[in-house]
Computed example of a mutant assay.
Amino acid sequence: MVTEGNHEIETIPLIGSTPFKPYNARYHMPYEESTSPSNLFYSFDVGGGAVHVLMLGSYTDFDSSSDQFKWLQADLAKLDRSKTKWLFALIHAPWYNSNKAHQGDGEDMRKAMEETLYAARVDAVFAGHVHAYERFAPVYNSKKNQCGPLHITIGDGGNREGLANKYINPQPSISLFREASFGHGQLQVANGTHALWSWHRNDDGEAVVVDNVWITSLLSNPACHKKN
């Protein structure tokens, strides 16, 4: 299951082309099933509906008047949170980033959509774009917030551009772990209240878990039952 990144825009200077034409031709995602009007954003369920995943588009319109924003609100409104215990979102350009690469690339989208995800009690937001790994504390409006989603940048899968190895110092208090290495992540949902996130660095010659954290669902936190 994929969502578009900046390299999928596919525009050619002077010649011109239709943005996302190759992407849409190669990757037909199940957007119709989630009543999305576009292949660039959609949602799907895992585990019989216990997990709901939002695949959001960083490179299509996302302001309050956009099709994506209206679809997102409608999609969240349909959820039965007595059955859907976990809610995750995927984007390309991270909303929080202490790497010097791609600073601010996701800021406009954050301003447009963060409040909606926070009110819906999204448990974690996963991003790419920055070719490194970084895990943040639960955060909302640039501050630690126990009812905000965990933000994780996992743009370290490998690329021809090399690693983004320059970070802003001192490390912001909301940034808990960061490393410029190639790797991959794994999310294991154990039950309705706990999930294990782990990040594996790929250049050790053997399987090494470098960072991991148990995530407690926001629905199971009494302090987050009110929209504070």
Score class of each variant (00 low, 15 high):
residue 97 N to M: 00
residue 64 S to T: 12
residue 37 P to D: 14
residue 198 S to T: 00
residue 74 A to P: 12
residue 165 N to E: 09
residue 43 S to R: 09
residue 204 D to P: 03
residue 83 K to E: 05
residue 80 D to I: 06
residue 67 D to V: 02
residue 201 R to G: 09
residue 73 Q to P: 06
residue 73 Q to C: 13
residue 226 K to R: 14
residue 79 L to G: 10
residue 7 H to V: 05
residue 77 A to W: 00
residue 200 H to R: 01
residue 67 D to E: 13
residue 118 Y to G: 08
residue 43 S to W: 10
residue 32 E to I: 00
residue 107 E to H: 07
residue 81 R to S: 11
residue 140 Y to F: 07
residue 185 G to S: 07
residue 162 G to F: 05
residue 145 N to T: 00
residue 53 V to H: 04
residue 185 G to D: 01
residue 40 L to S: 07
residue 36 S to C: 04
residue 37 P to H: 12
residue 191 N to H: 10
residue 79 L to R: 10
residue 202 N to E: 05
residue 179 E to W: 15
residue 27 Y to G: 04
residue 180 A to R: 00
residue 211 D to Q: 07
residue 163 L to S: 06
residue 134 E to W: 05
residue 210 V to H: 10
residue 176 L to I: 10
residue 109 M to K: 15
residue 222 P to D: 08
residue 69 F to A: 05
residue 204 D to M: 14
residue 150 L to S: 10
residue 143 K to M: 06
residue 131 H to M: 05
residue 109 M to S: 12
residue 118 Y to D: 08
residue 16 G to E: 06
residue 48 G to R: 04
residue 94 P to M: 06
residue 38 S to R: 02
residue 59 Y to L: 04
residue 218 L to S: 06
residue 128 G to M: 05
residue 17 S to V: 01
residue 28 H to K: 15
residue 20 F to W: 03
residue 149 P to L: 09
residue 203 D to G: 01
residue 35 T to I: 04
residue 156 D to L: 10
residue 66 S to Y: 09
residue 141 N to S: 11
residue 109 M to R: 11
residue 184 H to V: 01
residue 8 E to W: 03
residue 166 K to F: 12
residue 33 E to Q: 15
residue 178 R to A: 03
residue 218 L to W: 00
residue 116 T to K: 06
residue 55 M to D: 08
residue 132 A to D: 08
residue 61 D to C: 11
residue 166 K to H: 14
residue 128 G to W: 05
residue 124 A to G: 12
residue 170 P to L: 01
residue 146 Q to T: 13
residue 217 S to M: 03
residue 60 T to N: 13
residue 215 I to T: 07
residue 51 V to Q: 11
residue 62 F to R: 08
residue 12 I to H: 08
residue 9 I to P: 02
residue 87 L to E: 03
residue 173 S to E: 15
residue 211 D to C: 06
residue 118 Y to N: 09
residue 145 N to K: 09
residue 214 W to N: 10
residue 33 E to V: 08
residue 129 H to W: 11
residue 124 A to V: 11
residue 82 S to M: 05
residue 206 E to D: 14
residue 132 A to I: 11
residue 93 A to E: 15
residue 20 F to D: 08
residue 169 N to G: 07
